[in-house]
Design a binder for these strands. Structure first.
Lengths: 208, 208, 208, 208
DNA sequence: CATGAATGAGGCTTCATTCAT
DNA sequence: CATGAATGAAGCCTCATTCAT
């Protein structure tokens, strides 16, 4: 069963391998569901929602098609759960990264660390696939958390007086915007350079 | 005639009406092709590539299905031409906007004008649909042109010494990034505010 | 289900009923495939390859269309397997008939027996349909086997010295050629008469 | 416009080029019809009835599709006329060849001449295509004429007493049967050898 | 008449989903 | 529960055939 490996179709997705111990199927018993969700995300990422067929997901998970339907009602349900699982993970990771801004020593350094952390997540295959699949273009989830940190930094005089929400969305924009632009042209993008430029611009504009 | 008007499916697209005199069918004779491409973009924008069915495109264009195939070989070809047509238009408009930076009086004002121009285009339904359909996330086409303008402005001392390419991609990021973030939450976004913030930040970082 | 029972179209095929317990659907479970192949041959024989539509085959087999595709990939694959199955049967029968020449008592009688056996197979509906479908005009498979027998008969002095391959192809030609000619005009053909004439001519020319 | 030149489809036909001055279209004015019939036969021979599409015939004839319909009502009518035209030609040629038996000098030589003449016609591309297209397997038209000649030869004592109809059909069978068999295996068939063997066998069996 | 353009009908194939085991 | 097998619904595409020019 090949599932037409042909040239990526219109609006297609990059190949994405998501986790590791797939195809081992039913390890304990409970995580067959996890295996299915995992496989589902992999396949959705590979083909997009419409082109992904349930059979391929079943194959990828090492189970039979009806088993998929036993655990998750629908193709749609399958999609929601699969993407939500990954989204949750991405959100968690991102929030953890932002936490590093709680007690920044050198602000420049701290922002650079946060920048590279966020951009790494943002540029990761899983995360990119997720954005494409959900049609979301940004990383709105952290805006809030980041704004919180920036608010504190303003109060502490480490950043100039400003609307922390604006600062947050602009900081993120300076990270992700250039990355999108470059990743469309070059296969390997120098994340460090992007982050350096972003932090530089950000601090020139918002530095205390 | 149903074409499942149901709730927008997974990864679906916003409804987008693209041009005006559709359904009027064959005006002259030549523009039947144009009508089809137009209808195609509308339907692709409405449903996404996979969910768009050629029958619906034909209905939208007011012709029979085979007529569509008479003018454009394939669903795929149809897609390429339809999107390319719109892309060309968007590119042209965007470049025209950037031109306004050729002889800027007050730089602040000029940047704000360019910013609002570009953002309007970027936030336009057609343009948004195009990005979603092609999976492109940015507006790479103008990077170059904008960098050209910035290079001149550096030389003229209106901007500080900097890499104009970086300045360009960051200026665009400051416009589009925040817009993406907000448009995901609010239905109406205050473009002026975004532009003002972007220009402010930009000039703080890059002002001569 | 109509399947245009109309007058046989261009280059059409004679109606051929191939086996018996069709439409009884899934007896055991395994023979659903056989039922499909059977139905396929029937329909291909009835309509020819192009005019045969998979829906009609499915109907004839008493299954749904996708079930056909479940068992056999393609219309083409379906065709190859269906015809090959019948071809194999015809070959086997034919070879069995030729075997009777291994220990011939009265050569005249033996040749007549073989002749009538081969001609019955050749004139059979299944076999005729097979030839039409595959575009094969002859019965090349037995040439070889028959030539083997004739070679032995030459050595045994029962036939005159001759090229057994030529003798074989001419014997077959004397059987099938006249049958083709007559079956094109009369609805019932006297096989015995054809065989008698063929054997007579053959033995006059090749008798020892 | 390519008309899928792909690998010959199921039950497909050999490529056959039929006449010469095609594509020159409307020479005088009247023979546009002839050009269409000619092109039709070429295309039918190339693709078979079902796979042949009227557009390709029109292209081959160098006219527009509706022109084809102007001259010949139907695809079916087109087919009948195209094949009948060729059939008539083949019949005429064949009958002319048989005429050589009217005043045979050396019977052996005469039969060999007639044999090679008939077999050349039979093995010709046009004639083969015709048989495939009409599903006819033999050359029944000449049976009668040949039987007439053989009847005279019997009376003249040049052939032994026999049913001339049987003699005729067997003579033809001895020519065409072996040719069919061999042409299925070898690309080039030695017509002379077949004819020699046929005449030899025929005269052994029917010689006066 | 000849043609470019348009269309109704229909065929192959795929896929999400459900039985029966 | 898990699975092999079966199916209804739908989509892309092609083609014979007809208008209007």
């Amino acid at each position: 069963m090949s599932h037409r490996t042909a040239a990526t179709p219109i609006g297609a997705e990059y190949p994405v391998e998501v986790s590791s111990p797939r195809r081992t199927a039913a390890r304990g018993r409970i995580d067959k569901r996890a295996a299915i969700l995992d496989a589902a995300f992999t396949v959705f990422a590979r083909r997009g929602y419409d082109q992904a067929c349930v059979q391929e997901i079943a194959d990828e998970a090492g189970v039979a098609k009806p088993t998929v339907y036993n655990h998750l009602t629908d193709k749609e349900t399958l999609f929601h759960h699969a993407t939500e699982t990954v989204a949750e993970a991405v959100r968690t990771e991102s929030l953890a990264v932002v936490e590093r801004l709680r007690e920044p020593g050198d602000l420049h350094v701290a922002l650079a660390e946060v920048g590279i952390g966020l951009l790494r997540i943002y540029a990761d295959d899983r995360s990119r696939a997720l954005r494409r699949l959900t049609g979301s273009a940004g990383c709105a989830w952290i805006d809030e958390a980041l704004a919180d940190r920036f608010a504190r930094l303003c109060l502490a005089g480490r950043l100039r007086q400003c609307d922390p929400a604006v600062a947050a969305e602009q900081f993120l924009a300076l990270l992700t915007g250039p990355w999108e632009g470059r990743s469309r042209q070059e296969s390997t993008v120098d994340l460090q350079a992007i982050v350096a430029a972003a932090v530089d611009t950000f601090l020139r504009a918002f530095g205390g």
